[in-house]
Amino acid sequence: MGDWTMLPEVNEDREGILAGIECFALDMDGTVYLGERWIEGAREFLKRIEDSGKRYVFLTNNSSKNAQVYVEKLRRMGLEVGMDKVVTSGQATIYYLKRYFPGKRVFLLGNDMLAEEFEKEGIVLVEEKPEVVVTAFDTTLTYAKMCRVCDFVREGLPYIATHPDYNCPTETGFIPDVGAIHAFIHASAMRYPDRIIGKPNADMMDYLIERTGADRAKTVMVGDRLYTDIAAGRNNGLWSILVLSGEASMKDAEESEVKPHLIFDSVREIMRYL
């Protein structure tokens, strides 16, 4: 934990909490859209944030795409935003690598578009003799790729992951995410990642605060996952809102040790308090 002021364990003062929020950190998959479809009321919610003099930024663990792809996707869906509005676990991982492994050769288990973002930022990607292993949400996964990454992990190389999510929500259900890949690697190489960058971990949230310049105590993390989105807020000095439009259900929230400050059916329901 940092040196920020601890927030209340439970607080149902919706109007009071939201009145003090200046920045909304919004998860994407399962929170504002599913696939190529906006969750009902999400577009109006984004406009209401801006109309109320507040701001928002998209904060996603999904590293199967780079930030530019998200900007283009949102444009196809009718929302024009700049790169400054999108913060990804891939970007946070690049930041971490530059800080702690500058100039090191990296084997990246990830999609081509993420590899392009890494290389554009000066990360040296290699297929042989890497010095660091990075695993991301690779939707082009092959058995040959899995054999290679397991070999490198088994060698004892530093092993970094972009995020921990087990599943990614889609319009038709859930698909295995990088957490499932980690389970495969562990079964073969007997190691889990040494460092996981994305939500709920501090590296991602520190990167968010640095990028936005936001005050933690006036920032709320809004998402559909208890173990990533809500824990990210709880563990790092931000407010947290769980929406029930994606992965987590009310039953999950009731049974979880990680408790959101507030719960809404969807972001649409938040609008009345802005």
Rank of each mutant, 00 (worst) to 15 (best):
Y166N: 08
Y192H: 03
A67E: 06
M271S: 15
R14Y: 03
R105K: 13
T60I: 05
M83R: 13
K98R: 08
N167Y: 13
R216L: 04
F137L: 14
D215T: 14
T228D: 07
P8F: 06
E15H: 11
D29H: 02
P200G: 08
F24D: 00
E210A: 09
Y70K: 05
F184S: 08
L59A: 12
L26P: 12
E247I: 10
A189Y: 05
A115W: 06
V153N: 07
K104A: 12
G223H: 06
E269L: 09
E9C: 07
M146T: 13
F58N: 01
C150F: 07
K85E: 14
S52E: 13
D224P: 04
M271N: 13
T228R: 01
L26A: 06
Y96L: 09
G237A: 05
T31D: 03
G30A: 10
D112K: 14
I175M: 14
I185Q: 02
G179M: 00
N235Y: 10
V69H: 11
E9Q: 08
R37C: 06
G41E: 07
E15T: 14
F137A: 10
L262E: 05
V222M: 04
T212G: 06
F137N: 11
E44M: 10
D203E: 13
E72C: 07
F58S: 00
V133E: 05
Y96E: 07
A67Q: 06
G179L: 01
E171S: 14
G82N: 10
R14M: 12
Y143P: 04
L7A: 08
D252W: 01
Q91W: 07
I17C: 07
T5V: 15
R216F: 04
E247N: 08
I49H: 03
G90M: 03
K47T: 10
A231M: 10
R48P: 01
D3V: 14
I197W: 04
C168T: 15
T228G: 04
L262T: 10
A232S: 08
S256V: 12
F58Q: 05
D229F: 05
N62I: 03
D224A: 01
P130Y: 02
R76F: 12
L97Q: 00
F174Q: 11
I230H: 01
L157V: 14
T228Y: 02
R191M: 04
P176Q: 03
E22D: 13
W239M: 08
R148L: 14
D229P: 02
E121I: 04
D203C: 05
R154W: 12
L108W: 02
G179T: 03
F174L: 11
D13Q: 11
M205Y: 07
R55C: 14
V57L: 11
R55H: 13
P169F: 09
I21A: 00
E36F: 12
V57R: 01
S266H: 14
T88H: 13
Y207S: 02
L59F: 13
M250I: 06
E210Y: 13
D203R: 03
A42I: 08
L74I: 12
